[in-house]
Design a protein around this nucleic acid. Structure first.
Lengths: 206, 206
DNA sequence: AGTTTTTTTAAACGTTCGTTTAATATTTGA
DNA sequence: TCAAATATTAAACGAACGTTTAAAAAAACT
């Protein structure tokens, strides 16, 4: 990719994540990227076009990982653990992309809502086919991807959404919490939780 | 509260949630609320002042619930279950507030970052004192509120963040997934998960 | 080398932005 | 009932917005 276009994309991700899409001005962005104002529209058509590329870039990468790790061999535990061990480093390496995607996810701009919906649809289908259906086959039907999907992603995701504000709150470094075994730890919490509610009739604890 | 002020607040929550703070214009907002443009600055000082009130309103309610349900009697399981049974209906009843808070959480506007940080600090301390410390006392130290907090909130929260886009994706009604036992279900997944990783030496599954 | 295509620039377009002002209407309280 | 405080209005402020244009510079190609 042309250096200027690349610089605009990178700067866009950073600024949209830190200031929000609507609060980021194109003059500000162009200056930070070291390019002329008109280059944004030249390469991306519009401000919204830049946002679309950012969303597509992250979500296609996310979908690729889900596709690879959820559809290949193994039982549910193996798949979940494999998925977590790839998706968490991916998100961690693309924190600002992730923040832009999550903060723009609920907004209802008709031009970009289709972009998001088409990706989400694919990912929901993957979780349905590879996790929910096998789970429901083993036990009685009760878990849908619309229920389990957000729970699983939420366990992973919220950390990165609150990290910028945690940085202002927590005295020490936050990275130490994400050690080598972190993806396995999250996978274990999730799997113990899912298997727990599937196997019991009574109550947990007390 | 004065009717006009109330209407501006309610409309602000809805529009910030649907379009984003930065992409919402004050003229648009005033017209939707049925008030004069100047009333926003009259009652809230500035656009940013309106956002601060929205953040404070939701986060103070959130903190009150955490305070009440986490500091009163009971073991960890009881506290978590009690908390979930109050916080999920609270978020559900204030979906748009919640979306505004979450989507504005990572942004670094110095004027409002202190508002967010002071609330987050209090909530982190609660989770630390009431959940992490008792957990770590029972077993060896390894869980911090910065690790467990986002996991717990994420399990609850992500649903409401993706709900607007799910509505475009899922053919049927999403509300059916949130039945009466939903908070207990989430609490169970969380508690089975936490107790699972605390009690094992080996691996879960396969 | 000369030609075509692509990239970059400076300037201006019209619009919308958040905010302020000063005058008017309404409500409040003595 | 009349003065004081509060609420509401229309209009305007300058600044910033996203976008477009036309010309210049650079790169690619023949």
């Amino acid at each position: 990719m042309i250096a200027s276009k690349q610089r605009i994309l990178e700067t866009g991700v950073i600024m949209f994540a830190r200031k929000g899409y609507g609060s980021t001005g194109l003059r500000d962005l162009a200056e930070q990227a070291g390019v002329n104002l008109a280059m944004v529209n030249y390469f991306f058509g519009s401000k919204k076009g830049l946002l679309k590329v950012i969303l597509d870039t992250f979500l296609s990468g996310y979908h690729d990982i889900a596709q690879q790790e959820l559809t290949s061999d193994g039982d549910i535990d193996t798949k979940v653990r494999r998925f977590m061990n790839r998706i968490i480093p991916y998100i961690r390496a693309n924190k600002d992309y992730f923040i832009v995607v999550l903060t723009e996810l609920p907004h209802d701009d008709p031009e970009i809502i289709e972009h998001k919906a088409s990706w989400i649809r694919k990912i929901v289908d993957l979780v349905q086919d590879e996790i929910c259906t096998p789970l429901s086959a083993a036990k009685e039907q009760k878990i849908t991807p619309y229920l389990i999907g957000p729970v699983m992603i939420g366990m992973i995701a919220m950390r990165f959404l609150v990290e910028p504000i945690f940085a202002k709150v927590k005295p020490v470094d936050l990275e130490v919490d994400i050690h080598d075994g972190y993806p396995d730890l999250i996978a274990d919490i999730f799997l113990y939780g899912i298997h727990g509610i599937q196997s019991r009739e009574g109550e947990v604890g007390q």
